[in-house]
Amino acid sequence: MALVTRAEGRKYLTPLVGFLLLFLGFPAIVNLIYSVSTVTFETLRSPVLSGFGNYVAVLNDREFWSSAWFSLRFGILTASAECLIGLFLAIFLAPLLSKRPVLMAPLMLPLMVAPAMVGLMYRLVLHEFAGPVPYYLFEWFGDSPAFLDIDNAFRTLVVVETLQWTPFAFLLFYMAYSAIPLDVREASSLDGASPFEIVRWIDLPLMKPTLVIAFFIRFIDGFRVFDNVYALTGSGAGGSTTSLSIYIYQAFFKEGAIGKAVAASVVLFLASFIVLHGLNRLAGRRKL
């Protein structure tokens, strides 16, 4: 017997569906209309339908593809670095944290800072004449690299993002690691497994779902990055640090090309949907 009848299910789902239609459906429909229209700030309420020209403009725009490439590289690199460092810390610090849980608080602190603030903070920290990092590099080595020039800006941004969000991955991994029953490890240890073998053959397989989820959450966050990049380098010299989010922002506000910006966001939405749907199907198959 079903716990909830079909009629009850409909009743319970109505508020949620209403909420989604109101707050997601309406903007989505407006976006779809704008994406096939000629529209400016002055004609926001009266767009003129003009076909798929905005989509053609976006797909033929080399800046769209270079910003997509920037976002993809940034997302993969930061997600990988955060997960690797987070995993190492989770396993390495687990014995200490189990005895002193209070240490979790300072480790989580970077998560509390707004990304835009992090960008501004590093703008100061890395400034040659005001920042502590270049100051000590000059003191010790007589020189300091250009952290935000064309050669290093990308690396600096990756490091800044990784430093802020590694605690997130670490938190997930520590919880997953703590949830592994001790007797499993003890049994493998009695069977002669080395600590490395325990991690490789016991801990990592049991943590695999968490590892995968953490990687994708961090990848999505990295892929859509905006705040800290924009605060630290803007779109970069010649647009070299333009992420897809910054591309859409610039097309919308700076160029006033509202149709093009919305078309780019629809393309991004479709690409994300296809990827997520594919992943969902893969996960479904595994369960079977």
Binding site: R123, L126, H127, E128, F129, A130, S144, P145, A146, F147, L148, D149, I150, A153, L232, T233, G234, G236, A237
Partner: peptide, 14 residues
């Protein structure tokens, strides 16, 4: 300065 490609008003003053 090497980071001039990220400089605006405030950085120049500093």
């Amino acid at each position: 300065p090497k980071d001039s490609l990220s400089y605006e008003y405030a950085e120049t003053n500093a």
